[in-house]
Amino acid sequence: MLKNITLGQYFPGNSLIHRLDPRTKLLATIALIAIVFVAQGFSGFLLLAGFVVACAASTGIHLKFLVRGLKPLMFIILFTFILNLFFQTGGTVLISIWIIRITSNGLRMAGFMAARLILLVLSSQLLTLTTSPIALTDGLETLFRPLQVIGFPAHEIAMMMSIALRFIPTLMDEADKIMKAQKARGADFETGGLIARAKAMVPLLVPLFVGAFRRAEELALAMDARCYRGGKGRTRMKQLKFQGIDGLAALVIAALLAAVILLNRLNLF
């Protein structure tokens, strides 16, 4: 049953990081990404990597899930590495075969860029692994709320996101059912060329869209029936509240920034 698959990659838990306010986590992740760009040497990267791994370990989430997020980006990381390796010049020549020359500068730059990319991915992984999609939506809505004065539809966007999250499992389940029903009528979704396969999707997609519209219409009615009229005058049962640990998180991030700047100054390696 497709509907049982967890959305995104959220791992429920009750660690310190899980309990942080989603806004704190969003801001901290942005800060962490900025710090990755501030770091100018491998010493800084080492510190940041240590920090991310320590955070992950404290949540009780197995490291392999953190690393798994790298897989889809492996190609880009590798590409960046090779590009830098071959096209950066300067420093001492390490290997020289035919027109290919690998220099010490190239190797350093390649490693530097790859490490930076890996750290960026791991930092955002940490956010999505420890924050449920719905908490993320709430966090984003609250963070963007001040922009409502200039007409930014923060509430509407958040509502759309949360309804989408609510209906993805339902629609996946429906897609599974329709696919089986058409297969029972001899439909073939697996063989044939690209065009044949695209054509074979019609019996799946048409009922799926028709169904989605029907659901949307019924949901709109049900929302109306429960007095929904947009974000104006609306309250929330769950209020996001900054707590002690959120302050602590801010301090930790600030300390991390200071440490990275210090390491840049020391210029160790």
Partner: peptide
């Protein structure tokens, strides 16, 4: 299947019923 009407997709009844035989 249950609620099989939600699996109809063709422009006409005739084409929809013909889907199986055509396959």
């Amino acid at each position: 299947f249950q609620y099989p009407e939600y699996q109809l997709f063709e422009e006409t009844v005739e084409k929809d019923v013909a889907f199986g035989p055509r396959n």
